[in-house]
Design a protein around this nucleic acid. Structure first.
Lengths: 200, 200
DNA sequence: ATATAATGTGAATAACCGTTCACATTATAA
DNA sequence: TTATAATGTGAACGGTTATTCACATTATAT
């Protein structure tokens, strides 16, 4: 039985991904050293070769999550110059992200296990959300300057409402074990949202 | 040191309230027998006089939560006959509910600790949300029949978007430790939402 | 007032989890 | 090839938590 050994950078990535997956699928209760080690074919104590402790492992998982979420905003800006189209695509990408990664975002945000007694981690997640909202707000502002979006709308309120199109549908999707149709709801919500947004 | 003994109905209520409070404030990780017992001035093992085990205690907490949440819809329907006004009041009540009870709703929904390996509990929470959404949808339908709300809007989509006005703002409020202004956001979001809703 | 049931106590148990450590195995550099 | 560092292993430890149990205390009915 030959044991395959991998470099610590590769392992750190693998561990972070598995950790995030567990967090999204089973919550913080499913995120323990044994569950992380098993799919990688290693033993729990081996994780300590690559992370000082569980906290640093969780931090890595959150950082990985952060990169994945924010990359969506860059992607849609590269795909189209139109502000309304950017919003629509971001909405669909976010839905897809949730369906793939289960409920990482809300679970991270609401599981106080994640940052109970870790104030710096809480502000880190807070900054992530603020950053995401800021980017949505920027797309809206840009659309207003170009005359595509009505000028009397407040970008800050609207970016929060944008997230609001996703969240509750994600809850239902999550609780119905994927039986409810998130994509369809997102499309219908987008019709309503974009009708409001459009400059007359 | 005289020990005060209380009837099991009273204790069950007390325990359920404390449990829900802990769940809302610190998440499932803060919800253990010791933390529930302390504020009641009893010892952890005493809880087993009133609940068979922790699961039944958590169930009682969720039931208590359910009653509190659904009572809001009854209250607004009693306060005013106007559908739009009912929705606005329900929005404000929900915000207040979140501020008082911290993050019970999303934490229950997203903490898989709550119903990992408890499918019946998951469907119970699922039914609660569906019921809440149904009641919102009924208010909207009623407004459409009375000609107060535009008839081309889909009540189901709109009731989900109604929750969407609250959720993301609640996240920010939660993560900023109450520094962000949920009420103000709710008012601004309501302006936008109701403008769309109004029949022309 | 007294017997009996209900409620509260504190110690004990078993399971789980994060973490450490001495040792084994594999990769890498000389 | 060989020496050395990096990576993986399995057993062990301490802490936490839910749960049980024999016992003490308080309420309630007769």
């Amino acid at each position: 039985m030959s044991i395959k050994k991998l470099g610590t950078e590769v392992r750190q990535d693998q561990i972070a991904k598995v950790a995030l997956n567990l967090l999204g699928s089973y919550g913080m209760s499913g995120l323990n050293m044994k569950n992380v080690a098993r799919p990688l074919g290693i033993v729990p104590s081996a994780i300590y070769r690559h992370f000082k402790n569980k906290d640093e492992m969780v931090d890595a998982a959150i950082t990985y999550f952060q990169e994945r979420l924010l990359s969506n905003t860059n992607a849609v800006c590269a795909e189209t110059p139109d502000s309304l189209e950017r919003l629509r695509m971001l909405l669909m990408r976010h839905i897809k992200f949730i369906q793939e990664n289960h409920q990482s975002l809300p679970r991270i945000v609401f599981s106080d296990d994640v940052y109970n007694r870790h104030p710096e981690r809480k502000t880190k997640v807070y900054d992530l959300i603020k950053c995401y909202l800021k980017r949505i707000g920027n797309i809206i502002s840009q659309g207003q300057q170009e005359g595509r979006i009505r000028p009397d709308a407040d970008p800050e309120t609207l970016s929060l409402m944008f997230l609001g199109m996703i969240q509750p549908a994600a809850i239902l999707w999550h609780m119905s074990d994927g039986r409810s149709n998130v994509t369809k709801h997102a499309e219908m919500a987008w019709k309503i949202f974009s009708e409001y947004l459009k400059a007359k």
